Amino acid sequence: MKLDIYRRSEAEHKLSYLAVPSGQPIPQEADNVDWHVENMGAELDVSNGHIDDYAIDDPMGQIREKGYAITSVTHQVPEH
């Protein structure tokens, strides 16, 4: 599935990621000026229930439910 990936800096030098189907805007409830483009049109396998590179659990379930998938607060990624 092609996804547009955005990142946001969090507290304690961590990152969160937001994935939306490629070409679609970030849904209004998740739209935030802090999101920065990470990877546009990324071809990602969402069938295994987790996007490892972005620490997103159940991406297909999240996209079906709310139109986007986001990193869980408990899985935020350390900033390099």
Rank of each mutant, 00 (worst) to 15 (best):
V46R: 05
I51C: 00
D58W: 10
E38F: 10
L3T: 01
A42E: 13
A30G: 09
E10Y: 00
A30E: 15
T74I: 12
L18Y: 00
V46D: 12
D34T: 02
H36T: 11
D57P: 01
H13T: 06
Y68H: 09
G49L: 13
L18M: 04
A55K: 10
G23W: 07
D31P: 03
A30F: 11
L15E: 15
Q28H: 12
S47P: 07
R8S: 11
R7N: 12
Y17L: 03
M60P: 08
P59L: 00
R7Y: 11
Y54A: 01
A42P: 09
G67S: 09
R8E: 14
I5T: 02
E65R: 11
H36P: 03
P78Q: 04
H50V: 05
Y54T: 01
G49C: 14
W35D: 05
Y54M: 03
Q76K: 15
V73F: 03
Y17F: 15
S47I: 04
A55C: 13
Q28D: 14
E10N: 06
A55G: 12
A69F: 05
A55N: 13
Y54I: 02
H75V: 03
E65M: 09
I70K: 02
D58I: 08
H75N: 15
N39K: 06
E65N: 07
Y68K: 06
L44H: 15
Q28Y: 08
H75E: 10
N32M: 09
K14C: 12
D57A: 13
Y17V: 01
V73G: 04
H36Q: 15
V20C: 07
I26C: 03
V77R: 00
K66C: 12
G49I: 09
W35I: 05
K2H: 13
V33W: 02
M60C: 09
Y6L: 10
E38P: 04
D34S: 13
I56Q: 00
H75M: 12
R64I: 03
R64Q: 10
M60W: 06
D4H: 02
M60E: 14
N48H: 13
G41I: 15
V73R: 03
V37N: 14
I56F: 03
E38I: 03
D58R: 04
W35H: 05
I26S: 01
Q28P: 04
T74M: 05
